[in-house]
Amino acid sequence: MKNVSSFILLAALVALGVWLWFVLSPSPERIIRQRLTKLARTASFSSGEGNLARLAAAEDIAGYFATNVEVDINVPGRVQHTLMGRAEIQQAALGARERLRGLTVKFPDINITVAPDKQSAVADLTIVVNIAGDRDSVVQEMKFTFQKTDDGWLIARVETVRTLSSAILHFALRRAPFIVPA
């Protein structure tokens, strides 16, 4: 009986040790996943936000990106937009918060590949955006490239992924320009 109790205690201690190790030294993948979750939460907002809160949120969002970040968003029929640098991100975030009544951002699927040198990583993810008042969501596969910096893992590049690629679709898009400013 005493042996069984000792074994259970030992197993519990080992489990606690493993749990503490994971909590205290999270893997890059875990850190990036957490940052993306926080980014989605920060980017989401509802109506009734004050000016100071808007400014703070926009600054907070920009903090997730590298200073020389390049964002290239191209959702056929919805949005085509390129942003260069953290200042433009902040401006776009502020503009969206001023213009829209509310926004919900979610990343329901995230696949992270960390480079062997652990200095960069790529997150292939699905983004779901719901704009308040719009019935349909915008759903898009995207690629976020992260870089490890002194300030932690920052987003260095954002680009859209064409899940369904087609030269025919490109032909259709060229034929009928419909670009909508973001």
Partner: peptide
């Protein structure tokens, strides 16, 4: 159904 980054959001075609 066609997955994107995962299977929580998919295309139906």
């Amino acid at each position: 159904s066609i997955r994107m980054a995962g299977v929580h959001e998919m295309y139906l075609k």
